[in-house]
Design a protein around this nucleic acid. Structure first.
Lengths: 403, 403
DNA sequence: CGACATTTGTTTGGCTACATAACTAACTAA
DNA sequence: TTAGTTAGTTATGTAGCCAAACAAATGTCG
């Protein structure tokens, strides 16, 4: 049996080449426009090697030469940039009431962002596959019209996804043991690109790691503020999924044995005291999942109006959230914890309290250098991360073939 | 400026060689005795390549040929084993009342295990360096007499050690901002091998990962049960230290806002409700740190006698511990959480309750496959891990030079 | 007992891909 | 115009992998 973690794999020349191609690709992404000489100087690779690698990447249409530098001593340099035009990566996010599809090019530029309503809360996984396949086909066809090759498709699911990509439990969708990736690939009939599935918080963390303002942080945690509360963990520059893929389940960390009852049946879970639900049980106890966004808007409006009870409620939620994040920061010592989902619109009234609690509880000197920040990627973070997941696999050496 | 995490480093042939040497070395460690043909078949490397790699490793005295196989069809195979004799890795553990030094060979066989009492609680870091240097010199000299080359020395410290190896805070030793590694290297006057410092829980986790019964687990957490409670985290096969090196500080996760006051000033920290201190405040409130071991022995004796109040106390501690470990398991989804330190002798009365709490609170299906286990490595786990840290750097390609 | 099969490990040759250095190219400065 | 500077390419050398042929040492079976 061949498994992935049977010790380190042996290396050969193709690995060297793949590694160095990825090094050049990443360097250009982060430093474009730049010359071959820049790449050689910064990476330590030889000029000749860089020329060969760049030629290869141009052949694969991943890089493109743009103009020359002017008015400098010496021969002008031909500048290189990522070639945005020939490829696309697709990310899809399923949720309680809608499906989002985004496509990005190699640079991460958003090519499209489609959202269609979908009764996720009352549909089976099979029905979701049908809906996703329809949407995906339209996206693929649009990409085809733009003469773009699709490099891959990843689906973000709010639930427990195991290391094989099987959706084990998605509480808000009511799914269990669904092989979404396999079924979707089947529905797309041999799509010619890999189809993957991962947890939404994991993928949002990946989006922050790649596109967010803290993209340099090798260690970060993204926290979803949806009906459930989950986390995606990036440590040492990579997503860490744990033994079976279930890492980041912080929603049911117990913060207070005397706290309110959680929907899991226990008391004082993070989700119950600092989740979006904890706010809405006070303001709109009968809201259905699909009304969530409207209800949160209403909470924001009332907070803006300075309604005392709402402000107190949010401060309280902020403090609980801060306590939970302190646990995360103490355990993982990330550079930054990023709050996402519905925490974003509520941030102005949450974050000060949360920060105070968190910084007060982190043991390491200087709070371990861990900051609490608010996501700037918006609601589509998971879908964007799903697309980023595709780009990541390109970065780690699985390049499209040569022309 | 050259920093370690500035993106992936370019690769060349020496990397390929180093990678493959490490692959062969690890394979032999885990499958000794084995033949060159076995290695080729299992790793996928070519027979010729394996021969060349093995010759190199024999030259470096890392491998040794042992007899031939007999009574099998075909040409008999020359079997290979790790060569235990020419090298040693040294691990030192500083504690409140003693310093431990261990030396192991390449196989992890313990060559010596010396413990000398040392008033760590009342000594400065400078005095500790003097004591450690004296002990280290004796160990190095003993290794010299056995004609062994010392590959490295690592010190395990109960405290916050940053990514540069500086001891930022060691509460029980009263140290702050001590460059132990630098000072110790200076005291040893150009020892000719690397001197490193790391947190004791991290190193104990490494010991479990390398030598423990769960050495196959790529994701594990080790929990120290000393005066403080800390954790070492192995994810995806490597120690994860976080952004600044302060990961695993679980002692002050707040489990109960209404709980007892912790020495950190807050209420209901894991350390305060499930640390060794939480037990001793009930049984021996005035015990000094150096009497800890005796006091725990006394608790064990009374538990064996079936004293009701002690059993209740331990069950209570077990439940709190289980709640804390549930948080760890939910966040990290490791294959196993290993309890160490003073939790080991107390395990018979703690673990059942802890398991029950933990499994009940882990959200993932089947508890995420996460088990709660008790360390079998004994009190010297951190020192052993310190030595393992040295062996790890050999494994990742920093081999001793050829003869 | 001897031919043959089986398995191990080495040798030879070929290939990939990196490094070094020499060289060409294209500009600025004076 | 000439010197200086920087960019990128073109040999040439070399490390180290793989594949295949080969040599060596054993067991098996007629």
């Amino acid at each position: 049996m061949i498994t992935s973690h049977n010790g380190p794999q042996p290396a050969d020349f193709t690995d060297v080449r793949a590694t160095n191609l990825a090094v050049v690709l990443r360097f250009v992404r982060e430093n474009a426009p730049c010359s071959r000489a820049d790449i050689a100087a910064s990476t330590g690779l030889n000029k000749a090697t860089v020329s060969s690698l760049v030629a290869d990447l141009i052949d694969r249409r991943l890089l493109r030469e743009t103009g020359l530098t002017e008015h400098r001593v010496g021969r002008p340099a031909t500048m290189l940039v990522l070639d945005g035009s020939p490829y696309a990566a697709i990310g899809i996010e399923v949720n309680v009431d809608y499906i989002t599809a985004v496509a990005v090019d190699l640079k991460g530029e958003e090519l499209l962002n489609w959202r269609r309503s979908f009764p996720g809360g009352t549909s089976s996984a099979g029905q979701a596959v049908v809906a996703m396949a329809a949407l995906a086909r339209r996206v693929v066809s649009r990409m085809g019209k733009e003469a773009r090759q699709v490099l891959g498709l990843t689906v973000a699911v709010p639930g427990l996804v195991d290391v094989h990509g099987i959706v084990r439990v998605a509480p808000n969708l009511g799914w269990r043991d669904a092989d979404l990736a396999g079924d979707l690939a089947k529905a797309l009939r041999d799509p010619g690109f890999p189809v993957l599935v991962d947890n939404d918080a994991n993928l949002a963390a990946l989006a922050e790691h790649r596109f967010g303002p803290h993209r340099n942080a090798a260690n970060l945690v993204y926290v979803t503020g949806e009906v459930g509360v989950g986390a995606g963990i990036v440590m040492d520059g990579r997503l860490r999924r744990g033994g079976q893929g279930y890492s980041g389940e912080i929603g049911h960390i117990e913060l207070d044995p005397a706290g309110p009852t959680c929907r899991c049946g226990r008391r004082g879970c993070l989700e119950a005291v600092a989740g979006v639900g904890a706010i809405l049980t006070h303001t709109a106890p009968d809201a259905s999942p699909s009304e969530l966004e409207l209800e949160i808007d209403e909470v924001v409006r009332r907070a803006r109006n300075g309604e005392r009870d709402i402000l107190t409620l949010l401060e309280d939620v902020g403090r609980h959230l801060g306590r939970g994040m302190a646990a995360v920061a103490n355990l993982l010592n990330p550079e930054v914890v990023i709050l996402g989902g519905y925490y974003v619109p509520l941030a102005p009234w949450l974050v000060a309290c949360a920060e105070e609690e968190m910084y007060g509880r982190v043991l390491a000197p200087g709070g371990g250098g861990c900051r609490l920040e608010v996501s700037t990627l918006g609601y589509g973070a998971a879908a964007l991360g799903a697309a980023a997941r595709v780009l990541d696999s390109v970065d780690s050496g699985r390049l499209p073939p040569q022309r």
